[in-house]
Amino acid sequence: MGGAMAGRTIFITGGASGIGRAVAQRFAQGGWFVGLADIDEAGMAQTAALLPAGQSSCHRLDVRDRAMWDAALADCAKAAGGRIDAVFNNAGIPVGGAITELTPDEIERALAINLKGVIFGAQAAYRWLKASAPGSVLLNTASAAGIYGTPGTSVYSATKFGVRGITESLDGEWAADKINVRSLMPGYIDTPLLDHAPNLASNGDIRARVRGAGLEITPVHDVAEAAWAAVHGARLHTLVGKTARRMAFASRWMPGALRKQMRKMHRPAGK
């Protein structure tokens, strides 16, 4: 049994690509058994092929479906030898653009995956993490967009502020159970998500907009190392990349200047 040999198990949503795939590789390298969860079964299989034989399992999961969470976690525990030590609530989708450009479907989908999916994940993970405490971890992917709301990211920021709030609430709520709760707060990360349009009304992709704004794109490897450090460390929120660190510094020490900068960012031409 791969799980018994590995000793510790992490369950990763969004495991088919991007941050989820990189974190899976990092934890497998560290000797953990890795449960991959996603709606993209082909992508999960590709991730699993990058991991040592017998050290992972794949589980189809739509994070919006509470019953699927229970089934996927139980299947992962069975494959891993009976326990889950960390759950990485990572699945998410980008959505951007002026709030008036977004369709109701786009808004509802982002809220359901990025926010409701994280809440359902925390609910479903609790019994497994309580059983493997002390030292078990719920790790949530928040964002630099959860530090300060920037123009053009209102709905995405709302979901990531929500993830930040969930993290802080559960850090207190689960302390007596000796379950650690952590978040990652990355800026723009070099994953396939950057190659999507921010919304249905847009031409061009997010990557081009980020580069046009002069912002840095952080290698996904850096997020994987941050996830490893977050699971093994004591920091509640882990900032990843220069954009996130600058945003956190400015929001704390120069809130007035940051607000002025954000208002300039979205000023219509000629005004």
Rank of each mutant, 00 (worst) to 15 (best):
G165W: 11
V240D: 01
G18M: 10
A42K: 11
V137H: 08
I19T: 05
G3Y: 02
S169C: 13
A45C: 07
F161K: 00
N140A: 11
H59S: 06
T141G: 03
L115C: 00
G121E: 08
A71Y: 02
G35E: 12
A53G: 07
F11C: 12
G31E: 09
A197G: 12
L170T: 03
A197N: 14
I119S: 01
F88T: 02
A80H: 09
A42G: 14
I39T: 15
I12M: 07
L139A: 04
G117C: 06
V155I: 15
K130L: 03
D190W: 08
S57G: 11
R211Y: 04
R252G: 14
S183I: 02
L184I: 14
S251F: 05
R83L: 15
M44G: 02
R8A: 02
G97E: 06
A131H: 11
P255D: 08
I19N: 00
A37W: 07
A71V: 14
I12R: 05
G172H: 10
M5V: 14
S202Q: 00
F88P: 01
N89D: 03
A49G: 10
A201H: 11
R21L: 05
G152S: 02
A176R: 07
D70M: 07
I166F: 03
T47N: 13
G256I: 08
I12N: 02
A72H: 00
L129W: 13
A4P: 06
D70G: 08
A112Q: 09
A42L: 14
D177V: 09
R127Y: 08
A24K: 06
V23M: 04
Q46I: 07
L258E: 00
T100L: 03
G146S: 11
G81S: 03
